[in-house]
Structure formats: C-alpha cells, structure tokens
Computed example of a mutant assay.
Amino acid sequence: MNIYRQTQYWKILLIGLLTLIVIATILYSNYLAEKLAGEEQKKIELIANVYKKLNSASDNLDISFMFEIISSNTTVPLILADEKGKILGFKNIDSVRAQTDKIYLQNTLEEMKKKKEPIQIVFSENSKNFIYYNDSYLLSQLIYFPYIQSSIIVIFLIIAYFAFSSARRAEQNRVWVGMAKETAHQLGTPLSSLSAWGDYLENILPENIKEKFLPELTKDIQRLETITNRFSKIGSQPVLSEENLYTEIETMVDYIRKRASGKVDFNIHQSEGANIRALISVPLFGWVLENLLKNALDAMDGKGKIDIYISSNHVHAIVDIKDTGKGIHSSKFKTVFKPGYSTKQRGWGLGLSLSKRIIENYLKGKLFVKESVIGKGTTFRIILDEKKQ
C-alpha cells in the first residue's frame, strides 16, 4: 500500500538528511582545522625567525619584542633541539612530568618527528637548530569534535527511534485489544438472541423443515460463538495447553476445504507415527490457521495446491504452510505483517498482522515468511514451544 511506500521514502529521506548533516559537519570542521593548523605553522615559523634574530642580535638591539612573540605562544607544544637531537628547550609541555620522567621529553620529541616536519633555524653553514612541534590541544579537539558530535547525534536518534517505536507498538496493542474486546461485546448480544431463536424454532418447526434448515443455522451460531471467543481472548493471557497439532490443523483444513473451490488440493504432511504436540490456545491457533489458509487461497485465485508440513526439532514444533500462489517479493517479507497492508482491493490488511500478534504475543512463538518465489508460491513458517518451560 502507498502508506508503507511513503513511510519507506520518509525513512530514506531522513537517513539521507542525517548523512548530509554529518558529512557537512565533518567537512566544515576539517576546513577550520586546516586553517588553524596553517596559522599554528606560521606561528612556529615566526618563532623560528625570532630565535634566528636573537642569535645574531647586537648588544644594543631591543629584543623585548622578540621575547613577547615567543611568550605569546601559549597553545602550541614545541621542542627546540640541535642537529644531534639534544633538547635545548621546550614550551607548552608538562614541565612537572618532564622533571620527574627522564625519557618523557625524548619520547615526546620522537612523536613530534613522526607527525610534522620540523622548522629549521639556520645560524650558519655548520650550525642549525630545529623546532619540533605538535597540534595544539584546541586543534586536536577540533579534529575529533565532528566525529564525537555525529556519534552523539546518531546515538540520540537511535534511542529516540526505539523509544518512539516502543510507544507506538504499545499504543497499537491497546487499540487492538480495545477493538477486539468491543467486537466480542457487540457480538454477544445478537448471538444470545440468535441462540434463543434457534431453540424456539427447534420447538415449533415440523421435523422435515427442522432437518433441512436448523443444522446450518446451528453451525452458523457455533461459528459466531467461536469468533466471539477468539476476540474475547485478545488482551488477556490465554491458558496454553499441549495439543496434537495434526488434529487441530486437520480440523481447520476440513473447515476451509468445504468453503474452497474444488480446484484447490489440500495436503497435510507428518512423519508416520509422529505425535507432535505444542503449547497452544486452540481458538487462537485455529484463528491463525484460518487466516493463513484464506490468505493462501486468495494468493492462488481459488485454484492450486496447499501443503502443510508438521515437524519437530525436539524443542520446537514447526508448521510450514506452502501455497502455489503469486508469491511475495523478498522486500515485502516483513511488510506483509504490518496492519493495513493488502494486495487486495477490498482487503483490510489485518489477517496476517493479527496472526503474527497472536503467535508471538500470546502463544510465545514465531511467524514469518520462510521463502517465496514470484509466480511459484510462498511458505509461511510457524514455530511453537513443544513443552512447558
């Protein structure tokens, strides 16, 4: 349906927008970092020139301004060393640690050598010093800032998404329960009246008319009672009991077979002598089977083959319902279980959604599309617990 296609488009749009924001943040931060790195390099080059000027300064030259330039560097860590690597001085480096740890300055110097090219201070052909430096603390923080910011945004959005999804699912569950309870309540009054009319007609009608009409009326009343019972169980925790799956599936297949065209072949497969039992609520499990079988009939347009395979792995009972219908595209394996999704013009799109809720929320099992091939058919799989936990 269009609503799910639009939802998918909105998700893609939001993800794309988030990606653009993250990329723009990283690019702009890298741009600022490069500009700041360039400014810091110019600052170090200026300090190198100052050192060179100081070395050749005459006694009557006012060098206070030069010392102010050197002192103005309060952010960029640097080490002054000679050609042999002997450390002559340092600035903006932990002086306390430098005094207590003899190899701290040397290790810092080696790290600076690996990261950036030093700036030479040439005093003469045979005499030169080097200024080694590293990124300032501010520049280091600026480089990592966009990644930290993006991570925080992504984490926040993930938490918000799951919180919103949980709240939406809880609201949907309340709506489901409310609708089911109200439906059961609304069916109760006319059903009681129908039952009373059935008893009355049984007493006053002649035997030949009773035998012709009352059995069908009784079946319809029983059917309505079953539907009312199913709806009444939604929202309350049903009592699960160990039941023979073959018996329950056979009962529902017989019911559907009578209402299907003669062009549909139904087959139930189970290992000979097997007695596969599972924890189920008979009314709710029957409801799920009815929905899946009717869905298969719709997919086959009233002709084809439906095979039901019952198996066990000694922990779970497995029921596969395979049809020879139109098939489902792999991208729709999860969408088909969403409320309102239907490929039929007059469909409500509630059968599969309700079936999945019953199996997973009430029978504590799983329901999913095992496999599907367009034009060949689909297999739905139900997994149920065999024994009480």
Rank of each mutant, 00 (worst) to 15 (best):
T183G: 03
L191R: 07
L17K: 08
F368H: 13
P238W: 08
F266W: 11
R223C: 00
V177N: 03
L105V: 07
I382C: 06
S151F: 06
G349I: 05
V336P: 10
S353W: 14
L205R: 06
Q141F: 01
K334W: 10
N134Q: 06
S64K: 15
S311P: 02
A296H: 04
K376M: 12
V154F: 10
I131W: 05
Y133N: 04
S64D: 12
Q8P: 01
I234E: 12
I148K: 07
I44K: 11
F368C: 02
K35T: 09
N2Q: 14
L139A: 00
Y31P: 00
K102F: 00
S261F: 06
E45T: 09
L54F: 09
A163V: 14
F337K: 05
G89K: 03
L289K: 06
Q389P: 13
D101C: 06
V154S: 11
E242C: 00
N291V: 08
L297C: 04
I328M: 13
A163C: 12
K370M: 12
K376N: 14
Q106G: 00
E68L: 09
Y28D: 05
Y31C: 01
A180I: 00
Q120W: 01
K356V: 03
K366E: 14
E360I: 01
V239K: 15
I227Q: 12
R277M: 09
A317K: 02
L187W: 04
I23K: 05
I280D: 07
K305F: 00
L109W: 01
L352P: 09
